[in-house]
Design a binder for these strands. Structure first.
Lengths: 245, 245
DNA sequence: GCAAAAGTGTTCCGACTACACCCATGC
DNA sequence: GCATGGGTGTAGTCGGAACACTTTTGC
């Protein structure tokens, strides 16, 4: 075991005092341009003033970690169906430059959360002070602190969740075609995970996609049927070892 | 990230000050009695003095979360191949009674870690003060704080990891029979996940179990071949969507 | 008609299930 | 021999991969 420093109670160091931050990795998918997007805000104070960062905040008295995560998001974005999931806790010393100011100052620890939201519904709240914007994953700016690492970790989770849970329907509109669904999977997971027609029949066989009977034309080609995600039909499949691929 | 505090500085509550604890969920499997075991220690100070709890500690200055987790384990147990994995961070207010003493006191947050260790190799360190013991999962005592919830979360993780990663070989002895391996899976996952002979051929086909040629007799019956886990042969399969069932 | 996109069907093949059966040992 | 556990084989079945084909639209 690394770093095994043995203890004599007298030489033992004092307990660290922490401020705890929450940082949210909020993904969306721009279905028009087939890009995975992530929500970033520009820091309006030191440290890292003017750098882009994940939307986060420090936890206040009487507030739970989740409360803090939802609070900072409510200040930045208005979406429906926001469901945050805890990602990971980053807590080594010296991850935040504020720790260096004074050796007896607070440590900074970050608990990260993850969500996937609907791109077109998301309404960014411009507060006139700090910037806020969606960035495509392929064109990220430099990020403050260790936010690149957090973001990378979140992207892994996104890909896993997409394969195992029905989170795709959190980003698709209420009604969607199977082509839309396939396109979404391709955008996030990359090409070559499955043939369209096999993807199609597999999903339909699972039985939680309800055909609305409505057809939608998009330029040339045969009109596509619009489907709706049937949460009730999916319920029994919940926490089964299900893969959508 | 942290510090994203907008408007109305006057009405906003102060930042919470935290002490950060790490709590370890250490599992093992008693292969003689086919029981899943968990390591518990008796608290030797308030709060919850005399209650059983997960082995944990508070993080000290200059120490990373992981360092703290390894430190407390080194005080309690001697094992080889200890690999800790972060589980979850529990951080709501009022989860620790120490918070109530004084409304301006610290909040207590717990980052939990998970590991699976070899039962027979594990040497518990009796320090003459606090108790330490393995408990079978089926006969747990009441636990301090929210440790029951943490333990439950860890057990979920154990079952998942067992199906997807080769952690079984962290608990089996260096040399083991396929019957041992099957027995271990049955103990943790319960009966009825697979037929023995199918389990056997699937595992062997994966190609990372090396037959040592040695035979082992255990009472009546044909002697069993002893196998060794071949980490090199497994390496290419790492992070493939692999299921051992 | 022709291109384009949606939707259906079919064949091949590998993987898992469920068993039946053979093998080597203790007693 | 026979009970006991280890180990091998096989027939049936299910599901995914690949790809050809049909349908319905715009132009």
């Amino acid at each position: 075991m690394p770093g095994r420093r043995t203890k004599k109670p007298d030489t033992q160091r004092a307990l660290a005092d922490f401020k705890v931050g929450v940082d949210n990795v909020i993904f969306s998918v721009d279905t028009d341009q087939n890009r995975v997007m992530v929500l970033l805000v520009m820091r309006d104070k030191a440290p890292h003033l003017g750098d882009w960062s994940l939307p986060g905040t420090l936890v206040r008295e009487g507030e739970s970690l989740e409360d803090a995560a939802y609070r900072v998001l409510a200040e930045k974005i208005r979406v429906s169906n926001l469901y945050l999931e805890q990602l990971f806790t980053f807590g080594g010393p010296h991850r935040d430059p504020r720790e260096a100011v004074n050796s007896y100052g607070s440590r900074y620890l970050s608990v990260s959360y993850f969500a996937l939201v609907r791109f077109v519904d998301a309404e960014l709240i411009a507060d006139g002070v700090s910037g806020i914007a969606w960035f495509p994953l392929s064109q990220l700016p430099d990020l403050a602190f260790d936010h690149h690492e957090i973001l990378h970790y979140g992207y892994q989770r996104l890909r896993n969740k997409l394969a195992y849970s029905p989170i795709a329907f959190d980003v698709l509109p209420e009604l969607f075609t199977l082509g839309d669904l396939y396109q979404l999977y391709t955008t996030v997971l990359g090409e070559g995970f499955a043939d369209y027609s096999n993807f199609r029949s597999r999903l339909l066989k699972l039985g939680f996609l309800a055909d609305t009977g409505i057809k939608q034309s998009r330029g040339a080609g045969r009109p596509a049927a619009l489907y709706r995600f049937d949460a009730d039909a999916f319920a029994p499949l919940k926490d089964k070892p299900l893969v959508f691929i």
